[in-house]
């Protein structure tokens, strides 16, 4: 469904991604694992159209989308839940969600999608008239996910969705990703919580210094000595 081919990304002279190739099959959960600064976020931003790759192709259903501006990529059905729960703090929850449905592909079904999001996260429905900044960390993450779903994405890239959340809430967020995937959503998961994300993932890639150094099924990577040593501390 989504194919990243030999992608380089530079920030000025600094190289963030070096010949990254990976595949995201339809209805999969693909985990991307790596240390801080390995290039995980750079990869997501390159696919989302926020960073322009300096080399390589990004094929979405066969079309090269590398270098397209982010609003066009979004409208193709590639959504992202960015790192750090980027909600609009002074806007209400309802307004935040409405913002997610402003892209052309999602306008027609906005009512239905809104109901779906409220059914999925009843807390958001209860607090729909409240400013998003007053929500707890976990609720803000739900809102960020909800806003992304309002855009009717076919692929969603989750960047550190459990960062800074309480353990119980982390479980909830990851369960949400799993449920969404069961309903047919293709997911890319960048998670610091390596053990859990590998368990969830059907495919996984390890990024080191901007390069893919290892790949395989989630289970295979979970059993790999190098992964266990470097990321699981076993």
């Amino acid at each position: 469904m989504l194919l990243v081919e030999n992608v380089d990304v530079h920030y000025g002279d600094a190289q963030a991604l070096d010949g990254v190739t990976l595949e995201i099959p339809e209805r999969a959960i693909v985990a991307i694992v790596g240390a801080n600064g390995a290039g995980k976020t750079s990869l997501i931003r390159a696919i989302a159209g926020i960073n322009r790759p300096t080399r390589g192709r990004i094929l979405y259903r066969g079309d090269n989308i590398a270098g397209l501006p982010s609003y066009k990529v979004c409208n193709l059905g590639i959504g992202q839940v960015a790192e750090g729960r980027q909600v609009f703090p002074t806007l209400t929850i309802a307004e935040n969600l409405a913002m997610g449905a402003m892209i052309p592909r999602a306008r027609a079904n906005r009512e239905r999608n809104l109901e779906r999001v409220y059914a999925m996260f009843p807390r958001l429905a209860e607090r729909r008239a409240q400013a998003a900044g007053t929500l707890s960390g976990g609720e803000q993450q739900m809102l960020a996910i909800g806003r992304c779903l309002m855009g009717e994405p076919e692929v969603v890239m989750f960047d550190e969705p459990s960062l800074g959340l309480a353990p119980a809430v982390v479980q909830q967020v990851l369960a949400t990703v799993r449920d969404l995937n069961r309903d047919g959503l293709t997911c890319v998961l960048v998670e610091q919580n390596v053990a859990v994300s590998l368990k969830l993932a059907s495919h996984a890639y390890v990024l080191e210094n901007g390069r893919i150094t290892l790949s395989g099924t989630g289970e295979a990577l979970l059993g790999d000595d190098r992964v266990r040593q470097a990321y699981l501390g076993i």
């Binding site: 982010s70 609003y71 806007l91 913002m99």
Partner: peptide, 24 residues
């Protein structure tokens, strides 16, 4: 709609872009 987009950009331009708004 334009007003909403403006507020989104004012609040968090990065988030506005990831929500699919043509911020430019």
């Amino acid at each position: 709609r334009i007003g909403y987009f403006w507020l989104a950009i004012r609040e968090d331009e990065e988030a506005a872009r990831s929500a699919g708004i043509d911020t430019f």
